[in-house]
Amino acid sequence: MMAEHMDEVEQVADAAESWEVVATKEWFSGRVISLRTDTVVMPGGVTADRDYVVHPGSVGVVALDDRNRVLLIRQYRHPARRLLWELPAGIRDVPGEHPVDCAARELAEEAGYRARTWHTLVDILTSPGMCDERIRIFLARDVEPIPEEGNSFVREHEEADMPVVWVPLEEAVRKVFTGKIHNSPAVAGILAAYVASADGFKGLRPADAPEA
């Protein structure tokens, strides 16, 4: 029984599989996202319509300093009607840009920091029942502030008044479990970093690990 159980556990891994799409209708196309309906062939040959949001993908950064504190920013999110504490993050909107380069750019632009050591921390699908957005979250260490003259990015709109704080990682975990932090990449990144810290981050994938 134990061997059978182990075999089942080893088979638990997400797999890329695309069911046949026989028709597609795009209802809306905006600056970042679009809304689409696919008619998909289900098991048994029947078809069903599936509505979803098409998204270019994102990156997020868990930046840890030498005191094991995580960098968080606060940003207004209008759909949620909340000011949320989040990781530095952004949309993959530069053609051909490697995800880790995108992450480094977002860390610099949103928080004014750079890092010398990067690893892939975790990959998440934010809401796979209604959106195809993928987020790769990186762990950034050996972090230092960028001199003001070296960062020419101009914040605007929601980013214009975006405070940056350093929170002890264990305290950030407590804030997740007490309902003080809700942003999904922040929750996933904070918990993943805390677990990964148990072996000194030795089990993490390199920053250029292939995307599944």
Rank of each mutant, 00 (worst) to 15 (best):
R50A: 10
D161K: 12
R174C: 03
P210H: 11
P95Q: 04
E158M: 09
V94F: 00
A15D: 10
S197G: 12
P168F: 02
D123H: 11
D51G: 01
L83F: 08
D66W: 06
F201V: 06
G129M: 10
R77S: 14
R74N: 13
D208N: 14
E133R: 09
P99Q: 07
P95Y: 08
A196T: 07
F28L: 12
L71P: 08
P163E: 07
P185V: 08
T39A: 00
V164S: 07
R136N: 06
V41W: 08
V40D: 05
A198V: 08
R82A: 15
A48V: 03
H98Y: 09
R174P: 00
E158L: 02
T24Y: 00
D93E: 14
Y76Q: 09
D7L: 12
R134Y: 08
R31W: 05
E158Q: 12
I181F: 06
L169F: 05
A207C: 04
E149L: 08
E133L: 07
F177T: 11
V21C: 12
V59Y: 04
V176C: 14
R114D: 05
A160K: 12
L35Q: 11
D132P: 06
I124S: 03
K180G: 12
D49F: 00
S34F: 06
H5I: 15
T120S: 15
E211L: 15
V53P: 01
